[in-house]
Design a protein around this nucleic acid. Structure first.
Length: 487
RNA sequence: GUCCCCAUCGUCUAGUCGGCCUAGGACACCGCCCUUUCACGGCGGCAACACCGGUUCGAAUCCGGUUGGGGACGCCA
């Protein structure tokens, strides 16, 4: 046993002793490594993580790589990166499902011995044909159990004909899922066909593996997307047949695109890591995702800590939610403003991707831009002119703010700051005021042209801050270059 | 098609056991204010209980149906 495992086992034991019952919450996130970690998966992971953390329990990771055709190590890495970025830390090492085949096969053997599973010799073509006929007859395509009563071939007898192992599910009665989000959901057993446990190559299928693993890993609450709801009654039957304790289930509604259809590539950035590239803050994404389907009164902004304190599955809504980029943008803006400038330096430096050694310190530049930036990308672009003199001036802004009277104002401004012994943003600002007063103009008549020559466009932090950060020499140099270029 | 789920402003949602809801908040949108720019912020506005029945003194809230949307129907997960 690894130290971490011993520790968690001890902790679980401690809680059990303390409360006299087994009440450890243990949730899991079980992605299949066949693609990116998308928005929906990230939210499922977040909810499972929040639930565990809220209850002081554990959150574990299981990589469901049993479909070896489509699973890749690369996808696993991307998923882990995504979770790490969001700060959804997992307990212990990730478990790889493919490595646990023996356990799954054993369970299948047990079911065979109990008579709860049987060999099915139906070929792919035969099954296709069967389904096609069912569909044509307006029925739900499902296995009709044609091999379940074949007694002519002993299941223990070696056979050169390919077969799969199917679960013998009950035909009558109903199976009830008691879901923490959806409540009672019952399925007629007649609707549940005999699912495949072991493929013809002997490998276990996901439904078997999930049940065996969730039980073996002592998962107390299975939190997953509601696209798995239909698998749940079958899984419950497997738990029962294997005499394993049934966990609690919580099926989280799916996230739809703005058009109401399931999220897909055409809705833009579905990979969670894409949001990092676009300059979103992890906590803002978490906050947004949490509010999609969950709420706490009228509040909108929740820190990570508050989410852990307040989150509960009982407050998760049942309806699917649409993804709304504008609200994410707004929330991200909230976090941008709240953030410590120092914490943003590294990421902004990366996004700027230019030499900043000659310009002002990045931290105060960031501070001056935080409240006018929706995201880090915005912020980096807003900061760029501090380190790169404009090579062009926005035409529309020039047209609007420059006229013949502008030039003398600029000249006297330059003369004024050239004469200053100790230049500062405040002094420059005061000078603009003086010049405009004298000319009986409002300050914008001079401040805007200055801004355009300095930044290349009509947008920047307040002029005093901007000039103060840029410094006397750079200010003069840019103004002169601008006059030369435009006059 | 069959089974399952869902249904409050354009979007996310509040709405504990039906009365406090002439339905609240947030995003978006539209005004106004603040402002040397862009933003932030402040104030105000627009805007919803899908429909039809029933239960009840009283329903967004309970029940039934209709409609609409979504999910699932693989030797994928």
């Amino acid at each position: 046993m690894k130290p971490a495992t011993i520790q968690s086992t001890l902790r679980r034991h401690f809680i059990q002793v303390l409360f006299g019952v087994s009440m450890t919450v243990r949730t899991r996130f079980a992605p299949s490594p066949t693609g990116m970690l998308h928005i929906g998966g990230a939210r499922t992971a977040l909810f499972a993580w929040l639930y565990a953390r809220h209850h002081g329990g554990e959150f574990v990771l299981r990589i469901e790589d049993t479909d070896r055709e489509r699973s890749t190590d690369e996808a696993t890495t991307v998923i882990l990166d995504g979770l790490s970025w969001l700060g959804l830390d997992w307990d212990g090492e990730p478990v790889f499902q493919a490595a646990r085949q023996e356990l799954h096969i054993q369970a299948a053997q047990q079911l065979i011995q109990q008579g709860d599973a049987y060999r099915c010799y139906c070929s792919k073509a035969e099954l296709d044909d069967m389904r096609e006929k069912q569909r044509a007859a307006g029925q739900k395509p499902m296995y009709d159990g044609r091999c379940s009563h074949r007694h002519d071939l002993s299941i223990d007898q070696p056979d050169d004909q390919a077969y799969v192992i199917r679960f013998r599910s009950p035909d009558e009665g109903e199976t009830v899922v008691n879901d923490l989000v959806l409540g009672h959901v019952s399925f007629p057993n007649a609707e549940l066909d005999d699912l495949i446990l072991l493929r013809s190559d002997g490998t276990p299928t996901s439904n078997l593996a999930v049940v065996v693993d969730d039980a073996d890993m002592e998962i107390s609450h299975v939190v997953r997307g509601s696209d798995h709801l239909n698998n749940t009654p079958r899984q419950i039957q497997l738990y029962q047949a294997l005499k394993l304790p049934i966990p609690q289930f919580a099926h989280i509604p799916l996230i739809h695109g703005p058009d109401g259809a399931k999220m897909s590539k055409r809705h833009g950035s579905v990979a969670i890591t894409e949001y990092r590239e676009q300059g979103y803050l992890a906590d803002a994404v978490n906050n947004y995702l949490a509010r999609l389907g969950w709420s706490h009164g009228d509040e909108e902004v929740f820190s990570r800590q508050q989410l852990i304190e307040l989150f509960d599955l009982t407050q998760v809504g049942k309806a699917a939610a649409r993804f709304d980029q504008q609200k994410l943008d707004w929330l991200n803006g909230q976090y941008m403003r709240q953030a410590n400038a120092a914490d943003l330096v590294a990421e902004v430096t990366r996004l700027l991707n230019t030499d900043i050694s000659a310009g002002p310190a990045l931290e105060p530049v960031i501070a001056s831009l935080q409240e006018r930036s929706k995201n880090l990308f915005d912020l980096a672009e807003g900061a760029r002119f501090f380190y790169q003199a404009p090579d062009a001036y926005q035409e529309k802004a020039v047209k609007k703010n420059f006229r013949d009277t502008t030039w003398p104002l600029l000249e006297s401004f330059i003369a004024g700051i050239e004469a200053m012994d100790d230049f500062s943003g405040e002094a420059a600002h005061a000078l603009i005021g003086e010049i405009c007063d004298k000319a009986e103009l409002n300050m914008g008549k001079l401040a805007q042209p200055i801004r355009i020559l300095i930044a290349g466009g009509p947008v920047s932090p307040p002029i005093d801050l901007t000039l103060g950060l840029l410094g006397k020499n750079e200010t003069i140099q840019r103004l002169k270059a601008g006059i030369a270029a435009l006059k």
